[in-house]
């Protein structure tokens, strides 16, 4: 219940935060909302010597539209994402995903950046980020860069961010015309984390054929992934429930499935297929298809 002692640092700017992150790259941790890190510190599963709290850094809490994309500051809470009018209109997958996270209190304090940087394999945001081809902006003393989400998640609790890099923003393409997206989740009854979470975005062409499909899957493996075989199997096809079901059978192709006390690998794989079909069907329906 009680964390080990640490030194606490409160940067006021991104630059200052980056300097601290560089200085304490070895034994420091960056704190955003704290809802991934503090629980681990209380269980003494994480015991950083230095804690760099981004909570007072100016300008990391925003949701805005720029160049046809939606950009969200890393310290934006799940709650803010859940209720943002801009997102409901332009990128409804994000509010839908936010709403699936934890509970009200967690959503009030937990942040999108904190969650993505933590890379929990059962977190919800990674699925949405993958389904939307998100880009993640990091800042360090050597400058900033945008990392495509396809390169972001490396393994269990591991991202491609370098030591000393801080995640500051995430960029998502807005919902194109004739498109719909959806998040379908089977939550663990105790933790609320995703046993399986599938985010999908589908764009139909003018004839109602699937022009583009993106499917992000979380909870199933050591990291969230894009179900490319599902995407390939449904692209160019009519979004009939039969076609969606058939395509969804590829949801775990080539994936090393997690098994645990709650759901064996086999069952998880089955759930992934079912929830992929459900997310796709809902996305198609929202795209105006049948």
């Amino acid at each position: 219940m009680i964390p080990e002692s640490f030194e606490y640092h409160v940067p006021k700017t991104v630059d200052e935060a980056a300097r601290m992150a560089a200085e304490f790259a070895d034994d420091g941790k960056v704190l955003a909302g704290g809802h991934s890190l503090i629980p681990m510190m209380k269980l003494r599963l994480a015991s950083p010597k230095h804690l760099i709290d981004l909570g007072r850094v100016e300008g990391l809490k925003y949701i805005r539209e720029a160049d046809g994309k939606i950009e969200i500051g890393a310290l934006t809470t799940h709650f803010q994402a859940e209720y943002a009018t801009l997102l409901k209109e332009k990128c409804p997958l994000l509010p839908e995903t936010a709403r699936a996270i934890g509970d009200v209190q967690v959503r009030n304090k937990g942040t999108i950046g904190g969650s993505l940087a933590h890379a929990d394999p059962a977190a919800d945001w990674p699925a949405a980020a993958l389904a939307l081809d998100a880009e993640l902006k990091t800042v360090s003393t050597s400058g900033e860069r945008w990392i495509p989400v396809s390169e972001f998640f490396v393994d269990l609790l591991t991202t491609s961010m370098n030591p000393g890099e801080i995640l500051t923003a995430i960029r998502f393409p807005a919902l194109p015309v004739r498109s719909g997206d959806a998040y379908a989740k089977h939550a663990h009854p105790a933790s609320g984390f995703a046993v399986v979470g599938v985010a999908a975005r589908v764009t139909l062409d003018e004839k109602g054929i699937v022009e583009k499909a993106r499917v992000g899957v979380t909870g199933v493996s050591s990291k969230a992934y894009r179900a490319s075989s599902v995407e390939a199997a449904i692209t160019g096809k009519a979004p009939s429930s039969k076609n969606l079901d058939t395509a969804s059978l590829h949801a775990v192709d080539g994936i090393d499935l997690n098994g645990d006390l709650y759901a064996s690998a086999e069952y998880r794989g089955h759930l992934a297929k079912v929830y992929t079909a459900r997310a796709l069907a809902l996305a198609v329906e929202r795209a105006g298809g049948k």
């Binding site: 269980l43 663990h188 009854p189 105790a190 933790s191 006390l261």
Partner: peptide, 11 residues
């Protein structure tokens, strides 16, 4: 004990 926290024991 494999269900040692409320993350595992479903209340």
């Amino acid at each position: 004990l494999l269900t040692g926290t409320l993350m595992d024991y479903a209340m």
